[in-house]
Design a protein around this nucleic acid. Structure first.
Lengths: 187, 187
DNA sequence: CACTTTATGAACAGATCGGTAAACATAGTG
DNA sequence: CACTATGTTTACCGATCTGTTCATAAAGTG
């Protein structure tokens, strides 16, 4: 099977959009950064928006895959895994290429509630919430849906603080808060 | 004193940028939405970016003013005021014009860490954190800086969830979490 | 009244935007 | 070999981008 130009484009475009933003990245910049001709891009995608949607799809797969794997590596009990979320976040935040959550940024640039980009970003957050809910259930904790939503709030809040207040350690602040919440749900 | 066109522009541009985004709003759109001529705009500001910075300054004043006033109205004890933050958020989220945090969106569109827009957004979050810290100190709670950062994480996370997962009540999820944290810091 | 300030509309740069067209190169397949 | 699919380069389209120019209107001040 030939190396797929389409996938190569999506992989490279993901990095460019993540680092530079969606509206701020023009098609010509995408050509310059990916080394792929504009004609090829428009053979594989009808519009720039379709390329954006494809990068978000890949990002969802990559990010959730990485997080779920990381959490399972760091802890073997469901309860420990809920806490390990924040250890994984700490690692992520410390990467030099860390630029925040791509989906938060995407829905900030495409605000209409029924815009495909906005919808796809919402889906990403919903899938994460559902996964946390399942883990909380496996841990036998009280009100697993409530707890999962609270852990999501802590995760998203930690991301924002990591992007906007660079000096501190929001992942560990969030982990401490999560510990208290999980403790309370253990009674 | 004559009605100040500059302030009128900033007030109206704030709404347009907030509703439509920064890069997505061109100067011509700004003319159409504000009813102020482009020539006037460039008499008062050198660049579009200067207009953006002015709208952020106004937003900071307005938002923190509103939040601090709201919190003081809703509760008279410092501890109660820390919880009232989330009641205020709930009101904010339910407004039809609610579109998330303008500073999160600004720093999502202007990502370079030393960009004036990014810096101004960071300042807004720092001022909020400092205010929460003072309130936590006034409440005599343990580790007021820690608690304030955690409350900030809850606040920012709730905003993100409100923007991206429209069905639920993230403000009350965050308030429940805040209750547990404040309780733990009361020992 | 004359004078200055402030605002306006409309046209216009020069660059960049998303997207297209046409001619050509390359490589895998029969 | 011919054929097809996939890629490239280059130039181009009309629209829109930030920002400027200029002539003109209106309003406050002496």
């Amino acid at each position: 099977m030939r190396p797929n130009k389409r996938d190569e484009l999506v992989r490279k475009a993901l990095d460019v959009f993540y680092a530079n933003g969606f509206h701020a990245t023009g098609m010509d910049k995408l050509v310059a950064e990916t080394g792929i001709s504009k004609t090829s891009m428009y053979k594989h995608f009808r519009t720039k928006e379709d390329i954006i949607l494809a990068t978000l799809e890949l990002r969802d797969t990559n990010f959730r895959g990485w997080l779920y794997r990381q959490v399972e590596t760091l802890a073997d009990t469901p309860k420990g895994q809920l806490l390990a979320i924040f250890d994984a976040l700490e690692d992520w935040f410390s990467l030099p290429e860390f630029r925040g959550c791509m989906f938060i940024k995407a829905s900030a640039e495409f605000q209409e509630r029924d815009h495909p980009v906005h919808l796809q970003s919402s889906t990403h957050k919903r899938l994460l919430t559902e996964h946390f809910t399942e883990t909380a259930k496996a841990a036998g904790l009280l009100n697993p849906e409530n707890l999962a939503r609270q852990l999501m709030i802590l995760k998203e809040g930690a991301i924002i603080m990591a992007v906007m207040c660079h000096s501190e350690n929001p992942a560990m602040d969030a982990k401490a808060a999560a510990t208290a919440l999980i403790e309370a749900a253990s009674r």
